[in-house]
């Protein structure tokens, strides 16, 4: 009797282990659609998390504001200077935009090519953040009903945060840049370039070092003009991620693993802690291909 019980226990344990390995192996990697139990759990929990996250954020923000009160005059002054600079740049921008439009028409651009850089920014509220150090998923309150699709890019005012990894009807999960890992089986890579030297510079942002808190950009060509303090943006090559999202600034450049290419260490521009609002970038061409 006892022996039989023991055997049964071993049997059940082994079945459970095998089951879990199967589930883990199945769930890893890109999945276009989630099953309905996952959708249900994600959406239901999203509603509840929304009730908690927003008020907590407001209260924490209030305390932060009180401590920041002293620096506010100085900040205001700086912001005014910046606003004046922007006003100057706006004139310049308007002129070059019109010129750009005229040239595109002269060169017979198709409608699709013209609309390629008309990104729409959808504002989303963060509803929860995972505490797991191996999986720092950020949850937002926009889902497939709002037009969100996997692999859309999520940004803040400062820069790139990450990309959408899982989508349900009313919420989606964002995988932040801190999850980038060049050795992982299904990690994403961002094709990147330098702001102001877009046609000359190229590399792949593909790794985040948790120990130093820095990103790294690899596969930079030997003759690349990239130097310290350059601002790194997404290049939009590869047609997965949109163009011109700020990733960070270069801290140093060193020779890569093989010696043929170089690797740059990048300080991320966006602050990943205590986010409240983020923007999801909707690319028009992505919409077309989905339809």
């Amino acid at each position: 009797m006892f022996n039989w019980m023991r055997n049964r226990r071993m049997f059940v344990l082994m079945i459970i282990v095998v089951l879990f390995v199967a589930v883990m192996g199945f769930s890893i990697g890109d999945r276009k659609k989630l099953t309905w139990p996952e959708n249900f759990v994600l959406d239901a929990s999203g509603v509840v998390q929304q009730w908690f996250y927003k008020p907590a954020g407001y209260i924490a923000g209030l305390f932060e504001d009180l401590t920041n009160l002293r620096g506010i005059y100085k900040e205001n002054e700086e912001l005014r200077k910046m606003a004046a600079a922007y006003a100057r740049d706006k004139n310049k921008y308007n002129i070059s935009e019109q010129q750009n439009k005229r040239l595109k028409e002269d060169l017979n651009f198709t409608e699709r090519q013209k609309g390629l850089n008309d990104y729409r920014y959808l504002i989303a509220q963060v509803i929860a953040v995972s505490n797991d150090p191996y999986n720092q998923t950020i949850r937002i309150n926009l889902g497939s009903k709002d037009g969100i699709q996997p692999n859309m890019v999520v940004v803040t005012r400062d820069g790139l945060v990450g990309h959408i990894s899982r989508v349900t009807p009313f919420s989606s999960n964002v995988m932040p840049l801190t999850e980038l890992d060049d050795k992982s089986p299904d990690s994403k890579q961002y094709a990147a370039t330098v702001l102001g030297k877009e046609s000359l510079s190229f590399g792949m942002v593909d790794n985040f070092d948790a120990e130093t808190g820095k990103l790294s950009m690899s596969r930079i060509a030997e003759n690349d003009p990239l130097t310290k303090n350059d601002v790194i943006i997404t290049s939009g090559q590869g047609n997965v991620f949109p163009q011109g999202m700020i990733i960070g600034t270069v801290e140093n450049v060193q020779v890569g693993d093989i010696g043929l290419t170089r690797t740059a260490t990048i300080k991320p521009a966006a602050d990943f802690d205590h986010l409240t609002e983020v923007f999801v970038v909707e690319v028009p061409s992505m919409e077309e291909t989905a339809e």
């Binding site: 459970i16 282990v17 879990f20 589930v23 883990m24 769930s27 890893i28 989630l34 139990p37 996952e38 759990v41 994600l42 929990s45 998390q49 929860a128 995972s130 797991d132 999986n135 720092q136 998923t137 949850r139 990894s165 899982r166 999960n173 995988m175 999850e179 992982s184 299904d186």
Partner: peptide, 20 residues
């Protein structure tokens, strides 16, 4: 499992397995 699904990033089942 709840934690795995709610914060589904890469993989489902890790926390469920270890907690159980």
């Amino acid at each position: 499992l709840l934690q795995d699904i709610v914060y589904y990033g890469n993989i489902i089942g890790v926390h469920s397995f270890s907690m159980g």
